[in-house]
């Protein structure tokens, strides 16, 4: 799949030009999700409030990354970079939580 611009410049890895219609559609989706997250936050769903808020935020982030940041046309290396960042943030959170959530498990006073 090569756009006219690629043929013009003899580019191999690709200059992918997004159509304005697609970008506008994504923007519309993001607006709907923003409205949705504000609306849901007013309902009392208990713990599910956090889950929906973060779920919607992740979805929005995914849209921005995939379309606005051109990741869908990027090399495997870019995708790997994103996975690496995610992995190490999860590591930072997970291992720190492994301390906080296990305080007192072994019955040592205060630890």
């Amino acid at each position: 799949m090569s756009s006219p611009i690629e043929q013009q410049t003899g580019s191999h890895t690709g200059v992918h030009v997004e159509s304005p219609a697609l970008l506008l559609t994504v923007f519309g989706g993001l607006m709907v999700l923003t409205f949705l997250t504000v609306w849901v936050s007013g309902l009392d769903l208990g713990r599910m409030n956090d889950v929906t808020a973060l779920g919607i935020a992740t979805l929005k982030a995914g849209l921005v990354i995939w379309y606005f940041m051109h990741v869908r046309h990027s090399t495997i290396l870019t995708k790997l970079a994103i996975l690496t960042a995610t992995f190490f943030v999860v590591l930072l959170f997970g291992i720190t939580l492994a301390d906080y959530l296990t305080r007192g498990w072994l019955g040592v006073l205060g630890r």
Binding site: T37, V38, S41, G42, L43, D44, L45, L54, I56, A57
Partner: peptide
């Protein structure tokens, strides 16, 4: 936005 602004609205 959700983490700072929206987290206590349901309460």
């Amino acid at each position: 936005f959700p983490l700072l602004y929206l987290l206590g609205r349901n309460l």
